[in-house]
Design a protein around this nucleic acid. Structure first.
Lengths: 221, 221
DNA sequence: CTCCAAATGTTGAAAAAACAACAATTTTTC
DNA sequence: GAAAAATTGTTGTTTTTTCAACATTTGGAG
């Protein structure tokens, strides 16, 4: 079965046997769905009924605020969840939308299984729970990181803060980021054209280098 | 014992019996500590060895960034954890500091117990785990909220986004916030004097009202 | 290959925020 | 309750960002 291979690639299911995965999929009534580029997977305001796991592709968590402006909150890749926090925190409605950036495959999990583990006490729940906690904790830390970037006063500081953090995650001064320039401006919540100007200024000053989505931090600080 | 009464007030331990609490405290080698105003409870860069639970008082999560600027990431109250995410995400060092804003009592939990539940499979772990997940998930959602405020382009939009969200949490147009003006500016990462000007402008326009830490949203949108 | 659309870069003017310095007010401390 | 310290408000100047409009480049789709 094709899907099992995909699932096993995801950190959350590392080391799971085919049998375990199948029982898990049955237990959570997993439903696979496929989306084209720029489709809405979950709409802001919708009821929290499913937990979405990105199997393949890429999607953005987006929000329309009280002033009717749209912003990208997060970028999700395969292995990422959407709706996990809402489920565990007993939220009724989604406050953000999930939109595919490209051809995307997701697994829809029945939310109730996350809240009430199955009667037959299937072992996958125990195993999963620990990983889910780890996942949720990591996500929190990532959000704190984003807060740190957004808290920077100027565009220069914001983008350098972000690039340093990406470099740390990659463990190298050379790294790819998941955004093009327009999306990066959106992520950092700054004017695209101003970001463009500043990136080139930093390049000319020999502080960074970039080409498409690949960046290089030449000078630390 | 005084401490048991304090613990029972905390949402995390609601419904726990004295016996359970005592066994839990023993199991986690809980150590109580008291801090005066403006003391450093945990210093950025320190090793993650304890999980801190605020029992009484108030503390800020603060960070000094790569440009040596300090900012308040979060404000913690009784019932809030510090270090939980780092523990579950297997981080080695703290990337933020925890500083008391007033006289504060904290419980220091041995981190290893969070990672490896005790051999005797004590029931408190099971019970706690579920609540910890709920806590962690709620925190994530709160962080996403903060991101939404910081993503606003102008000071006016930032502060209104924050006040609306506080009003929602309180479930009323009248509500208290945990910050004075200086701290609010810090939290929203804007210039204090500029924030002051804008708050008064909003007041004169009849959009909001405020007095000390109490605010009132008069017009929605 | 050509055309079209999207992404990216550039510029100048307008708006907003930061900064700095100081006045007024409130809170704390002795 | 007076003095000191911290918080808050005010103002003018400087700097930065946004905004708007357009040029250039890139990346498909046919």
């Amino acid at each position: 079965m094709e899907i099992l291979k995909e699932l096993k690639k995801i950190a959350l299911f590392k080391g799971f046997e085919d049998k375990e995965l199948l029982s898990m999929m049955n237990c959570f009534s997993v439903e696979l769905k496929e989306y084209e580029k720029n489709q809405t997977i979950i709409e802001q305001g919708q009821k929290v009924e499913k937990v979405v796991l990105l199997i393949r592709g890429e999607a953005n968590v987006e929000n329309i605020d009280i002033f009717d402006n749209q912003s990208i909150i997060l970028n999700l890749k395969n292995g990422d969840f959407f709706g996990l926090e809402e489920t565990y925190a007993d939220k009724i409605y989604f406050r953000d939308s999930l939109k595919s950036c490209e051809k995307t495959i997701v697994a829809m999990f029945d939310k109730t299984r996350f809240v009430f583990p199955c009667e037959n006490n299937c072992p996958c729940h125990q195993k999963l729970l620990k990983r889910i906690i780890n996942y949720s904790a990591s996500r929190s830390l990532m959000l704190v990181d984003k807060i740190k970037h957004l808290s920077q006063r100027g565009i220069k500081e914001k983008v350098l803060s972000y690039l340093h953090s990406q470099s740390n995650i990659a463990g190298s001064p050379y790294f790819d980021i998941p955004f093009n320039k327009t999306e990066l401006a959106n992520y950092l919540s700054v004017e695209r054209s101003a970001l463009s100007t500043i990136l080139w200024k930093l390049k000319k000053e020999g502080i960074i280098d970039f080409e498409k989505k690949r960046y290089h931090i030449k000078k630390t600080k």
